[in-house]
Simulated assay, not measured.
Amino acid sequence: MDLKPLLNKLEHYRVEKPNRVFTMYLNTDPADPDQQGGKWRLQLKNGLNNFESYLQEDGDSDEKRNYWAVKEKVESFIDENETSLKKSVIIFATADEDVWYADILQMPVKTEFYWEEEPVLGQLKELQESFPKTGIILTQKNQIKYIDAELGTVNDTNVYELDLDTEDWRMHQGTHKADSNLGTGGGKTSKKDEFNERFEANRYRWYKSIAPKLDKVAKDNDWERIYLVGESDEVNDLDEHMNKDVDEKINKNLLAEEEMKVLDKVV
């Protein structure tokens, strides 16, 4: 998801009768006391039927057909995704599908329905301001993971791992577990101790080499907010070498945590 091009389009989008733009903000948050028992289903039904009743009285057959086409698409989207709903659903739609945006979000909204000459963007802009394009960079010695997120939803996640033989950072796309192979070994000095000594001796240089890659990731993803998460020395080294401004540094080891849990703890 990238809201910038969507907002750029919708902010300047206008139609004339019999065309209209449908806007829906639907609260489906199961933790909301007002949504106990799935009350959102009744709110959705009433919201859609209210427009239909109004259009029946208005008598504009072309506008009615346009509305019915949009209503059918909205109901189909909800039916297909009902088992995966989270806290809210946002939909913008036109009958000719020149506009069709439907998304399930982890952020709550106030339930509202509109059938207007232009999309109603107030709540969407408020959500974007409270949770803009965000990058979370998590460090754990020779592994660095980034999470690309927006509106409380994970868009992408990747892991860079340092090849200790070549000293090159290599990317592993998608979820990647933290390295658990650095355990204890035989002899006076364990394998883990040897690694830690080597890592501390080279950390500054190794993190300097990964910083430009992270700057590029931040630029390519248009991050408006950046968090560094990890051991204090590690995040400080990354912060020093990155050109992009870091909004907050958090001294926690969360690299192995599930991405949505990281969002909840960090943002």
Rank of each mutant, 00 (worst) to 15 (best):
R203D: 02
R203S: 14
R203P: 05
R203T: 02
Y204W: 15
Y204Q: 12
Y204R: 12
R205Y: 07
R205V: 04
R205W: 08
W206A: 00
W206P: 01
W206S: 01
Y207W: 09
Y207G: 07
Y207H: 14
K208V: 03
K208S: 06
K208C: 01
K208D: 03
K208H: 09
K208N: 08
K208Q: 15
S209C: 03
S209Q: 09
S209M: 11
S209N: 14
S209E: 11
S209H: 10
I210A: 08
I210G: 04
I210S: 11
I210N: 00
I210P: 02
I210Y: 00
A211I: 06
A211E: 08
A211H: 05
P212K: 12
P212Y: 08
P212C: 11
K213C: 06
K213Y: 11
K213M: 10
K213H: 10
L214Y: 03
D215R: 14
D215S: 08
K216P: 07
K216E: 15
V217H: 12
A218H: 05
A218M: 07
A218E: 04
A218S: 13
A218Q: 04
K219M: 06
K219N: 08
D220Y: 12
D220W: 01
N221P: 02
N221W: 04
D222F: 10
D222P: 01
D222M: 13
W223G: 04
W223M: 14
W223Q: 02
W223L: 10
E224F: 00
E224C: 02
E224L: 12
R225L: 12
R225A: 11
I226G: 08
Y227I: 05
Y227M: 01
Y227Q: 02
Y227V: 03
L228V: 01
L228A: 05
V229K: 05
V229S: 09
V229E: 06
G230V: 05
G230Y: 13
G230W: 09
G230L: 12
G230D: 13
E231L: 11
E231C: 05
E231F: 12
E231Q: 11
S232W: 06
S232A: 12
E234F: 10
E234N: 11
V235G: 05
V235H: 02
V235S: 06
V235W: 00
N236D: 15
D237Q: 01
D237T: 06
D237P: 00
L238F: 00
D239H: 12
D239C: 07
D239Y: 13
E240R: 06
E240N: 09
E240F: 15
E240P: 03
H241A: 05
H241V: 05
H241K: 09
H241G: 03
